[in-house]
């Protein structure tokens, strides 16, 4: 039996009076890649934002129910949100390198913790870029601006930036939506490598991507979880008609 890492229990989310997530109940296993697919506005991205509480920043955002990460309710009163975000890294749809050097981008989160030892930072930069599959391409120009990298490189830099914090979870919100097929392939390769050490949740608009990299896949529709199962099952014999319809391209 696989170890459960995240438990979602009767979880709902509202923007003002609009309910964007409806009574979700499912588990995420440790060291798996969980793909989340579904049409636009189905609540996929909102769910990710709820997991590291970036939704706190939006006015009118409200939640009900629980999300337990490693057994701890992340909406509990004693939760340290800043520490939670370090533990649960987030990669956004558009790569957003901060306007500083490649090196400084990678150590941004580490420096926030007050670590400034040059040797230690150098090591973190090399390890993180290596794991994100970017080290060989940028090792000779770590001090140049991260804004000069290509879109695919920027996105892998964003992954490296999260790995530098030694998180346990990585959330990716359509990480390859703006990238060419080769960059996409490189990122997918990185993800397969990373799942040995991390639990990954991948939101994607590209159902084929879920089929390629996800161990299990969840299908969201209008804020509801329609079904969640092994990726192979979802793609070959889904139990819900709506899943089948979506995968066949009847809507979405």
């Amino acid at each position: 039996m696989k170890e459960i890492a995240i438990q979602v229990r009767n979880f709902s989310h509202y923007y003002g009076s609009h309910q964007s997530l409806k009574n979700l109940n499912f588990d995420v296993y440790r060291h798996e890649i969980l793909g989340i697919i579904g049409p636009a506005k189905s609540g996929k991205s909102t769910f990710l934002a709820c997991l590291n509480r970036l939704n706190d920043l939006l006015p009118g955002s409200r939640v009900e129910g629980q999300i337990l990460v490693d057994g701890q309710d992340i909406y509990g009163p004693e939760v340290d949100v800043v520490a939670l975000r370090r533990k649960i890294g987030m990669v956004f749809a558009t790569p957003v390198p901060l306007p500083m050097s490649i090196y400084e981008n990678v150590v941004y989160g580490v420096r926030l913790l007050g670590k400034n030892n040059r040797k230690e930072l150098d090591q973190i930069v090399e390890d993180s870029l290596e794991k994100a599959g970017l080290w060989n391409e940028v090792k000779d120009r770590l001090q140049t601006s991260a804004l000069k990298l290509s879109g695919g490189q920027q996105q892998r830099l964003c992954i490296a930036r999260i790995l530098a914090l030694k998180p346990e979870y990585i959330l990716l919100d359509e990480p390859t939506s703006g990238l060419d097929p080769i960059s996409t392939m490189k990122i997918e390769d990185s993800l397969r490598m990373l799942k040995k050490d991390y639990t990954i949740i991948l939101v994607t608009n590209n159902t084929k991507q879920a089929a390629r990299v996800a161990d299990r896949t969840a299908f969201f529709l209008m804020g509801e979880l329609v079904e969640i199962d092994d990726t192979r099952v979802i793609f070959t014999r889904p139990s819900d008609k709506r899943t089948e319809g979506y995968l066949e391209g009847k809507f979405g």
Partner: peptide
């Protein structure tokens, strides 16, 4: 300053 910079900073555990 792009809102995304703030989101990234928060998501990396900044106050």
């Amino acid at each position: 300053v792009p809102q995304a910079y703030r989101l990234v900073s928060f998501s990396l555990g900044s106050t």
